[in-house]
């Protein structure tokens, strides 16, 4: 017991010394430093490549600054009393139940400000964005809409293009697995479902994701604005190889795309096997 008391005393003096605390903080920072300083690393998302991508970025950073502002107030309100109002024997704390009319008014004003500034501001922008972008799924008749059907399965993405005849479920359909080729500058509209469990089509560069559920068809769209190659991920846990369920999106300029589509459609006809029922999944486009 005596040895133990001595040890505790030594620990106390160690802990109370500023050097220990400072070096503790330093050690924690140093633990992270080697990783942080090395080059060739990504610290944020890849640049957006869809026409509504900027909406996500704008909203994200608006919320971020609102949060930084609000959280700073909280931290200051913690720090000031933590330093100024530390325990002193004999001093009495300010006696206040916070039930006066003044306090109630202040609380009401701050509540209203929270709702109007933080909530309503974000809400209005988000609603506008949703109506103009994510939920504004283009109609089939609209000029230039490119339609793709998606069948997700454990653990692959199947994509079906209409092919030369402009109809789904025919011999000249283009089928792609874990690879999707679309034209730049045209709205790409998806309808998707799943063969087995729930999957979620996530294309980070295009700033959207959508679950594809077995037994139901979900719609989603985006409009690429930059040609290039982008990663397709599955965002909903789908079992053993969930982490391997990824693919690549190729956004081609329209003339390159047209050539590719014509070739692929011909190849599709050549490879068509009417016996292969597995490969003949398709549905009439749901309006």
């Amino acid at each position: 017991m005596k040895l133990h008391t001595k040890m505790m005393q030594r620990l106390t003096s160690l802990w109370t010394s500023g050097i220990t605390r400072a070096s503790l903080g330093l050690a924690i920072l140093c633990g992270m430093a080697p990783e942080a300083l090395a080059g060739g690393k990504r610290w944020g998302p890849v640049p957006f490549a869809s026409d509504f991508g900027y909406r996500f970025e704008d909203l994200f950073w608006l919320i971020t600054w609102l949060c930084v502002g609000s959280f700073s107030i909280v931290v200051i309100m913690i720090l000031i009393p933590s330093v100024r109002d530390r325990y002193k024997p004999g001093r009495k704390a300010h006696f206040d139940h916070g039930a006066s009319l003044k306090d109630k008014r202040l609380a009401t004003v701050i509540s209203a400000a929270t709702f109007l500034v933080l909530d309503a501001w974000v809400l209005v922008i988000a609603m506008t964005d949703l109506r103009e972008a994510w939920w504004n799924i283009p109609e089939s008749e609209e000029a230039g809409v490119y339609e793709v059907e998606v069948l997700a399965q454990q653990w692959a993405w199947n994509f079906r293009h209409k092919g030369a005849d402009g109809k789904f479920g025919t011999a000249d359909d283009i089928l792609q697995m874990n690879e999707l080729t679309v034209p730049n500058g045209r709205s790409v509209s998806f309808q998707g479902t799943s063969k087995d469990v729930i999957h979620s089509l996530f294309i980070p560069a295009m700033r959207f994701k959508k679950d594809f559920n077995p037994g139901d068809i979900n719609s989603v769209w985006f409009k690429p604005i930059t040609a290039g190659n982008y990663t397709i991920l599955c965002a909903e846990l789908c079992g053993y190889a969930h982490y391997q369920m990824f693919g690549e999106l190729h956004v081609l300029e329209s003339d390159t795309f047209d050539n590719w589509a014509a070739d692929a459609s011909e190849l599709g006809v050549a490879a068509y096997d009417s016996e292969d029922t597995e490969a003949r999944w398709a549905w009439d486009w749901k309006e």
């Binding site: 009393p81 933590s82 109002d85 325990y87 002193k88 001093r91 704390a93 300010h94 916070g98 306090d103």
Partner: peptide, 10 residues
């Protein structure tokens, strides 16, 4: 935050 404000914090 008002509870700890102007307290005698232990």
């Amino acid at each position: 935050l008002h509870t700890i404000w102007r307290g005698n914090i232990r």
